[in-house]
Design a protein around this nucleic acid. Sequence first.
DNA 1: AAGGTTGATGCAACCGATTGCAGACCTAGC
DNA 2: GCTAGGTCTGCAATCGGTTGCATCAACCTT
Lengths: 322, 322
Amino acid sequence: MNRPRITDVARLAGVSTATVSRALSRPERVSAETRATIERAIAETGYRLNHAARNLRHQRTGSIVALVPNLANPYFSQILSGIATVLSPAGYNLLVADTRTTNPLRYADPSHADGLIVLDGSVPPSVLIERPTVVVSEQIPGLSAPGVLIDNEAAAAMAVTHFADLGHRKIGHVTGPRGNVLTEQRLAGTERAASARGLPAPVLIEGDFSLASGRRAAQAWLEMTDRPTGMFLASDEMACGFIGELQRHGIGVPRDVSVIGFDDIEMVEHLTPGLTTIRQPRGAMGCVSAERLLAILNGNDDESDTILPVELILRASTAIPR
Amino acid sequence: MNRPRITDVARLAGVSTATVSRALSRPERVSAETRATIERAIAETGYRLNHAARNLRHQRTGSIVALVPNLANPYFSQILSGIATVLSPAGYNLLVADTRTTNPLRYADPSHADGLIVLDGSVPPSVLIERPTVVVSEQIPGLSAPGVLIDNEAAAAMAVTHFADLGHRKIGHVTGPRGNVLTEQRLAGTERAASARGLPAPVLIEGDFSLASGRRAAQAWLEMTDRPTGMFLASDEMACGFIGELQRHGIGVPRDVSVIGFDDIEMVEHLTPGLTTIRQPRGAMGCVSAERLLAILNGNDDESDTILPVELILRASTAIPR
DNA sequence: AAGGTTGATGCAACCGATTGCAGACCTAGC
DNA sequence: GCTAGGTCTGCAATCGGTTGCATCAACCTT
């Protein structure tokens, strides 16, 4: 037995398919009596709407695609989770594409998705102009899509200011890869805040956000003659690597050096010592980006960026310098 | 200007839409000459196939949905990542649904997805019978879908055997919630291995896989008069909570108690001490489950379960008892 | 009572492809 | 020269709904 179609319901209810369709999508356009008959027929046949057919007619797909650089990375999956909370009640499906394994071009196609949420700053803007797009976390140069961002400069300034408040004077900063938007913004904030508090220019070490580069930064720190007492690292992963490597060399955190990270990924709460860090509101970033995209799809959006507030989470990796 | 349709290409090439369609899907059925003309017309119009229309005609969706209990949990996102690697080259879209915020029934519908990969053992089997389904990690009682699983009992036995090898005699086990399939299997393995090695019956503490329940287990351990020297916890999260709480009370790991976790979630490598644990091959579980589902969709599958091997990862949280 | 509303319903075109069937043409075989 | 077989292509139905427009009855106005 085949799946019942709208025709079957219509026949059983003794009305046209048009009426059944209307009873489903705009019940108020159908008389109460007919509606009841139709509902009975639907129940009897076990009819269920074919979304593919409806979507074809409506020239939409009912899906939103999220482009993530690495699905296995918890940083992104928490944003995804926020996106899902908003999309699902709105009746949209969430399609997830890992840009390492999937060609993003595939989803620029209108017959795949109604809109895109881009979590990967390295996606070429040419891919994205075809569909409504919102970018999260990383702005894409050359793309005029609304972004859901944080104020990286102010966030970095918070970290440095915290060091200053504790009495640190010699600050170090481990950056992300040079040229990256996030890197430059966090660096600018670091230098601005240091100068605003009358501290000497921060010592810079280049990293690449990865754990390994944090370890290398620790080596660099160990070799310094005049070591910074407060180290601000542009990602929590680097901070983990940094602390781990120092501990291996008998350096105490925060006894010998205070450390601040960036992101507040889940694990850093459980490190010993717990990592003081800048929390990005990842769930909220996901929610807001989904809301913004839905607004665009509904035709009421203002094109502006949304800046979400960050928070300095105080844990045990920072202390007064000795 | 509207998006070009197959009709536009046909008109420009001077052929029927049927021929264009064939040139696209079965080029060998079209003469080389016509094919060339059509390709030129496609290039000129910038035509791109509408997948929604094709899928409607083919009675398929081109999407596979993954049902996850919690998208923000890295344990699941790594499985998802594995799924994505397989699905994408096969031309399928990956739809992700968080069962906390989405009604799984929505995706039982054939007009939404061609098949399901279920990572949530609590999804009622009635939802799943309608579509080809593969379950991952947790078997669902009453559902006869192929599963991609690990041998939880053997895995637990590995942990206990390791304790025995180190010379521990008094073993404790923090379980998941009683009644859960995973809980019972791991418990059975724990008890079997203990008895096989001639150890006294393990001390049991009930947990629920969460960090907080690991902390509670630590309280319970602290209050014991005859404390187990080797504690095996049924999840890494619990192990984190357990160790953190003990350290807060000045108990050294592995100095005073050795600890083994379960899962090998990413963060436990970076704890101090690094956690000895049972690694579940999450990426592989994702890959295999996707492959199995594709096999079912292509009509060649054998209905059996796939058991993937686990591995005991030795780190610094286990040592010879003092 | 004629004309104007309003509300409920049906007709049939449409979304954009795919495909069974049949016709046109060509070649080869006898 | 005629037919069988093969290749290439087009016609038109189909997937399963949606919706603009037309129709018609009932009710309202004046």
